[in-house]
Design a protein around this nucleic acid. Structure first.
Length: 264
DNA sequence: CCTATAGCCTGACGGC
DNA sequence: TGCCGTCAGGCTATAG
């Protein structure tokens, strides 16, 4: 679930309930999920400090602390956060629990443990270390930046969109949705796309991501014309009714309409 | 620069 | 019902 729109929703949720809160304690239940931070460092960094306004870059939630350092969360395939007024609140697979001085707690739940918990000195250093490309929803990210980011890429457009070093935030689900809305076959080589194709994809990308966020990244709330909830066997194209085709693109299951997303 | 593969980890689902 | 294989919205490391 956690692609850009989901993480955007998590980040807003985080800011609604945890921003400005002074941290009292933390329980680390899966130390193996710590990256670039030891339990000791987290323990010395968080308690006594407070969270400032969290930002998102790609699929990462980045929460600056009053110390100047940043608390980092990545959600893997199954992660989410949940706030409880009750400091004893629980979720089924909680891996980190942060309790606040004024009561309440924030739980990071990650069933498959494919996410990560970490610390960073500052956002720029973190992005460089992770080699993250630009965030497609950054204010200054326009069509020419998009074209530049994709320039020189030879693989399938779906793979390029999912490459976090090219663009940060798009995963398997939303790359399918973006290419469906753009009417572009996911297997087309990025280098075979012309400027007008790129504009079509760019516009679809911005629209899909913003639409998903405005729906709280809740798939059931997405517009009828979306493919996202139909990516399963027997799923049909919302535009022409044709059965969607599933194939592997760069090792990931890709759904597309064979009629609406033809190779041009 | 790119693809395919395996691995990390755990649950859900379908077939027999 | 139970067992087993396969797959899952992430990412990395490796080999070719």
């Amino acid at each position: 679930m956690p692609e850009l729109p989901d993480v955007e929703v998590f980040t807003r949720y985080f800011n609604e309930n945890s921003k400005g809160r002074k941290i009292n304690d933390l329980q680390i239940k899966a130390p193996e999920m710590l990256k670039n931070a030891s339990s000791r460092e987290l323990r010395s960094e968080l308690p006594g400090r407070e969270f400032m306004s969290a930002k998102r870059h790609g699929k990462y939630l980045i929460a600056p602390l009053s110390s100047g350092n940043c608390f980092i969360l990545h959600f893997g395939m199954t992660g989410f956060i949940r706030y409880f007024e009750d400091p004893d609140g629980h979720t089924p697979y909680e891996k980190l629990k942060i309790t606040f001085e004024s009561n309440g707690c924030l739980v990071f739940d990650c069933r498959r443990k494919l996410g990560e918990i970490g610390l960073a000195g500052n956002i720029e250093a973190f992005m460089r270390q992770k080699r993250l490309g630009p965030d497609p929803l950054a204010q200054n990210f326009g069509i020419s930046d998009f074209a530049a980011a994709l320039g020189g890429k030879r693989g399938a457009i779906k793979s390029t969109l999912m490459n976090q070093e090219v663009l940060a935030g798009i995963g398997n689900i939303y790359s399918d949705e973006i290419l469906f809305q753009a009417g572009i076959n996911p297997e087309i080589k990025t280098s075979d796309l012309d400027r007008s194709d790129l504009e079509t994809i760019y516009n679809a990308m911005i629209d899909v991501l913003n639409t998903a966020i405005s729906c709280n990244a809740d798939s059931d709330s997405l517009p009828d014309g979306y493919i996202l909830t139909r990516r399963k066997k027997g799923g049909t194209c919302p535009k022409c009714g044709e059965e969607l085709l599933k194939r592997k693109v760069s090792g990931r299951g890709a759904f597309a309409c064979p009629r609406c997303q033809k190779i041009m």
